[in-house]
Design a protein around this nucleic acid. Sequence first.
DNA 1: GTCCGCTAATAGTCTAGACGTATTTGGCGT
DNA 2: ACGCCAAATACGTCTAGACTATTAGCGGAC
Lengths: 207, 207
Amino acid sequence: MNQSDELERRAGVALWLQIKEQLQSQILSGTIRPGTRLPPEPDLADQFGVNRHTVRRAIRALSDDGLVRAEQGRGTFVQEHGIDYLIGARTRFSENITRAHRDPRAELLASRDAPPDEVVAIGLGMAKSDLCLVMETRHFADGAPLSIATNYFPRSRFPDLEHHFLEHHSITAALRAVGIADYLRHVSRITARMPDEREAGHLRQAI
Amino acid sequence: MNQSDELERRAGVALWLQIKEQLQSQILSGTIRPGTRLPPEPDLADQFGVNRHTVRRAIRALSDDGLVRAEQGRGTFVQEHGIDYLIGARTRFSENITRAHRDPRAELLASRDAPPDEVVAIGLGMAKSDLCLVMETRHFADGAPLSIATNYFPRSRFPDLEHHFLEHHSITAALRAVGIADYLRHVSRITARMPDEREAGHLRQAI
DNA sequence: GTCCGCTAATAGTCTAGACGTATTTGGCGT
DNA sequence: ACGCCAAATACGTCTAGACTATTAGCGGAC
């Protein structure tokens, strides 16, 4: 299928840019679906009738724009936007992100000790006089902020959970580090509302 | 000056990354000053003992990070950044500029003796009949004008502050010369407005 | 004195090829 | 059936060289 994708040589527009734009329009129009693999670089080079390096230059530009994601040894994939976030008893943020072939990471926005409010106290089976470790966390996929969360833990049971979290950048990994290999959701309650100003800032979102 | 900048080959770290990091640390430490031109790509390639393409890969990474700016036909320049001007009780113009690895200097635009207006009189605890030394100064970073200021001092306490200022090109140094080793800000009030014609001229600014 | 054009310097693009590294696949042996 | 190992596949890095595009500076023609 050589030369089906015509490029103009010495037209004042770099070949790699023309290639990038052709691929980009195919991606944006959905001709190449999110999650699918692009043809290997040597094939593309053959298709466009250029050197592999020229194709690589185009792919790097697409990658910089976040349209594709190149994985060494596997291929180059059209980036999915929007992640199907499956919620079950064993839901883990990292697993959901990893399933979408993206890189999960979390950071600690703030942590403090505070008495639990009624909902938390009942949920965790704590006395209201016991202290809670409250961690506010922000979660990223491929460096883009995706969610913020407020996590409550009985302080007496987790004396250094924050340190483990800071080290592993994951709640699941931090819990594993303190001996909790697995845990289940007891209830999941979902509501929706607009972010307030502080939350929007954390999510780099316009209000 | 070949090989003065040692790279580790096949150390698991790409050569271009090592080059990027060396250049980056020189830029961030101020060894290569903002606004100056980097050596041409062929020279850098020779210096690092690599191919020009490898240097280009490093420069592109720096460019992506906004640390340099490559201009075809002219060269690659270290990007000038605005200066973070920290204001605290012990703020000094020179320190703020020095922290940004730039060269502070101040000059005297005008000086005169005048009675203080009400705000100044109260601020300095002077009688309205006492005289103030009023110094209008202009401050530079690396030769570029950055700010103009009007400074008020009780004349009785500083009989020749102007001369010391002219000698040291710094308010802090002039005060030190008359025995004031340290001083604190009592209040800082910040407002913003457009410059008038005279001010714009001093700052070499278009209105 | 001004303008034009030539030349040198410098970054940008493209090709060609070799080798490195990560991942997947499939066959072979136990 | 399972696991291990080798080959195939795919992206990543590095080198070498040629050509292009843009800019700055200089010198000559007018």
